[in-house]
């Protein structure tokens, strides 16, 4: 196996779109570098492998950032739901049983809370996401309502916190419809979703400037 063939095989560590775009050029640069190298062959391959492994990991991570953002959104949502559960349980009073918050203010409020927590989590954990920030803002806004809808375990606990004598509901959608804001129709549900997404986007927009400033500080 020649060194060219080894390098061509190692290029598979990069994503396919990246290989298609730059693979040939990288192989040509590798050949030129190898021909010009005057030191020991192990030194050369040590440099090539370190360069390749680090940059391939970074390139893979960059292409997966949207996924990382959404996963963090989900985790933060679950954490927030647990915190809300605990708070409701701690301060529970029968007086609250008949309290029903309208869909729109509930959606806006929840969007602000979750948008803020997700934004802070991203700010702390993945500062690199400030690149193409609008894409991450959209991912967050989409991930939040979806997370609420599909994290049935967290929702179940949250519902128990809201109404400790309620029977567990079998479906996440039922829990969402019946428990969170008690919307009476699909229109209410759509309003709540839209309000959550819009307010989460607004939070991200407000956080964008400090995020960018943080990025410039690096």
């Amino acid at each position: 196996m020649t060194s060219d063939q080894i390098y061509a095989a190692l290029l598979r560590l990069y994503s396919k779109p990246f290989r298609d775009e730059y693979g040939k050029e990288m192989a040509a640069a590798f050949r030129a570098m190898r021909d010009a190298h005057r030191g020991h062959v192990l030194t050369f391959w040590g440099f090539v492998l370190a360069d390749l492994l680090v940059s391939a990991a970074y390139e893979r991570f960059e292409t997966m950032q949207w996924l990382a953002t959404s996963v963090i959104g989900l985790l933060v949502t679950v954490g927030t739901a647990h915190a809300v559960t605990w708070t409701f349980r701690y301060f529970y009073h029968p007086y609250f049983e008949d309290v029903s918050i309208p869909a729109l203010p509930f959606g806006v409020g929840l969007g602000f809370v979750l948008g803020g927590t997700v934004g802070v989590a991203q700010w702390l954990l993945i500062p690199a996401t400030v690149r193409r920030a609008s894409r991450w803002a959209l991912a967050s806004a989409v991930a939040l309502p979806l997370a609420i809808l599909f994290c049935s375990a967290a929702l179940d606990r949250a519902m128990t916190g809201l109404d400790p004598i309620a029977q567990p509901h079998p479906a996440a959608l039922d829990l969402f419809v019946l428990g969170l804001a008690r919307p009476s129709s699909w229109a209410d549900l759509a309003t709540q979703f839209s309000a959550m997404a819009a307010s989460a986007l607004l939070v991200r927009a407000l956080m964008l400037k400090p995020l960018m400033e943080r990025s410039h500080a690096h």
Partner: peptide, 10 residues
Amino acid sequence: GPGTLYTAIK
């Protein structure tokens, strides 16, 4: 190296 260069170029 080629990897660092072309990820930077990208």
